[in-house]
Design a binder for these strands. Structure first.
Lengths: 352, 352
DNA sequence: CTGAAAGCGCTTACAG
DNA sequence: CTGAAAGCGCTTACAG
């Protein structure tokens, strides 16, 4: 049909139009599914696009006014299994909503955070998702940029509260549910592993635990043993083992252990088992995050599921709502998603 | 200084120029660091940009001819710890080379792979990184698109070979090194856990192992016991435990175990320890991937490090080289990166 | 149903 | 040192 069967490279609607003997406006109409194109013409254009591998430039399209369809997503860190699940879920939810994710990881480096947000704005993204919040150093700069550009934005699970639309896990409720579960099983003395104000989302959990302990008529001083090492680099297996060793040194051992996350819980469980303890016969253990591995180890681990899917769906809805209202910022609007207790073998009644 | 201290929103060089009483070309020159601008003017422009939160559009800039500085990165899956490390490392290496990563995960869905590659091309990325290869269904379409657009591309660790520049881990060498390590310790009978042609990069390792066993004067039929379950969904702890249980049922047990990865190795180790075996006293175990956790468990796990950093650096160099040569495709150019044996406590001499 | 103008925000030449 | 033209690839609104 065409004069040359494999022309060099067609990278613009004009070139394609020339190739087909049409005007570039017709190509644009086909691209945008306008109804006024003759079906035969439309078919010819589509076939040529396929054959020549023509992909219309999003740069040109977005520049002319239509939106980019891209959402800038900023993560603090990567590598932890729970973060991987967040990333994967958010990407899927965004795709299902017709967006594409532009992802960046900042490793908590504030300079990088500023660079990344500027880059997102330079790409003229349709929205911003900030997962885990942002560092303090440039936070006012970043908030200023967001306001100046009137770009829809949502914070997911920030460590500190920001004056931006936010969706977060209700960690206080998570602690409450876990404590209630253990209390109802009969436990009256508790050890915490790694639950310290200095770790991510540690403070809200510390505070919640103290509150619920007192509400239950127990004493924070006597019935709650706080085991942690503020110098710990990572909240991993090794840390759990280390803290479990300290638990074993206690003279009057609590009958239930609440760990900062599943890794620490599992590390502790392994150490206690090695030392001859029975779980939950001698001591109950509960984690936080409900990792895949937690349903596979023996005993299976009681944990708190973050309902990541629900969080991300709510976050994306928040973004969409801001776009539709053409009223980008609804500040201090916080949605809290309730976590779910997954009760498994590692928690049971205390020894008699 | 300016008439209105907080103007609505400055989103173009023209608007900023008007605001400052300059021409938009002067703004562009400041943006691009051209030397012919009066320092005082340059300073004024920079300060106004900062104050107003002006971020020049990358769409306009890229459209005019300069490149986007973006690299499209396509991953097959997310969630496995080793993949997270690959993602994080690649992103860092790209950033250090002055690029930004546009990441997409396809979950091995071939339709999505095609969509993603088209989107990258529509964004006029400066290069493509395909991690883990692409599915068969649309592979010729995708290769065609890459060729038609003359975009620099590199495959990282494809499961199948493709006629594209490739950087991959030398898994054959990995198996060889691991086997040699165990053989030199005195082992003469081996069990493999989950090393099966159907798992990712399983075939090359199966083949390599058979070859090196025979080269060592041993018999594949008699001295190599293949334990795996082709129906296994995931190569995780649970799978390792399951395979270890089968190992324990063997009448003449091999003295060394090679696992498909660290998770399976650790799962097996936990099961064997529970069953009363001593590691490496009764049996040696080696993994593959050198996860963080492998240096934290007891005994620490002998493993193979993938040298991810080196792989990603080589991949990015390949991309840069293609750009510089203005000769995008050097097909079938395969770089193999040697893995490294990390010898730890889980491997030792066989029992006497 | 299809053509030609105008313009999105930028940069690369060319003038002064 | 700074201004004005031309044009990157696209779409919207206006003609025919």
């Amino acid at each position: 049909m065409s004069r040359q069967s494999h022309p060099k490279s067609i990278v613009s609607t004009s070139a394609l139009a020339r190739h087909l003997g049409l005007s570039r406006w017709t190509i644009s109409r086909v691209l945008n599914g306008h109804p006024e194109v003759k079906p035969e013409t439309s078919r010819r254009v589509r076939e040529a696009m396929d054959e020549l591998g023509f992909v219309p430039s999003l740069l040109g399209r977005a520049l002319r006014g239509s939106s980019t369809g891209m959402i800038g997503v900023c993560f603090q860190a990567i590598g932890l299994p729970i973060i991987s699940r967040k990333i994967a879920t958010l990407q899927r939810v965004l795709r299902e909503a017709g967006f594409r994710a532009l992802q960046e990881v900042t490793d908590g480096n504030p300079d990088l955070e500023l660079t990344v947000v500027k880059h997102f704005l330079a790409m003229r993204v349709d929205g911003l998702v900030l997962v885990g919040g942002i560092g303090e150093l440039h936070s006012s700069r970043i908030l200023g940029l967001i306001e100046q550009h009137r770009v829809p934005v949502v914070m997911i699970d920030p460590m500190e509260p920001f004056d931006l639309p936010t969706v977060e896990l209700d960690r206080e409720e998570g602690i409450r549910v876990v404590f209630r579960h253990l209390f109802d099983l009969g436990h009256r003395r508790f050890a915490t592993l790694g639950i310290h104000p200095s770790v991510p989302w540690g403070k809200v959990r510390c505070d919640a635990l103290r509150r619920v302990v007192e509400e239950s008529g127990l004493s924070v001083a006597d019935d709650l043993v706080d085991l942690n090492d503020p110098a710990a680099a990572e909240l991993n297996f090794a840390y759990g083992k280390q803290l479990a060793a300290r638990y074993l040194e206690l003279t009057r051992r609590p009958t239930a252990i609440l760990a900062i996350n599943d890794q620490v819980a599992i590390g502790a469980m392994l150490h206690l088992q090695e030392a001859g303890s029975s779980i939950p016969g001698d001591v109950s253990i509960v984690g936080f995050d409900n990792l895949d591995v937690s349903s596979h180890i023996r005993p299976t681990l009681t944990s708190i599921d973050q309902h990541i899917e629900e969080i991300m769906e709510s976050g994306v809805s928040t973004l969409v709502a801001q776009r539709e209202r053409a009223e980008p910022l609804r500040r201090a609007e916080v949605v809290r998603i309730a976590p779910q207790l997954i009760s498994r073998e590692s928690s049971g009644p205390p020894p008699v």
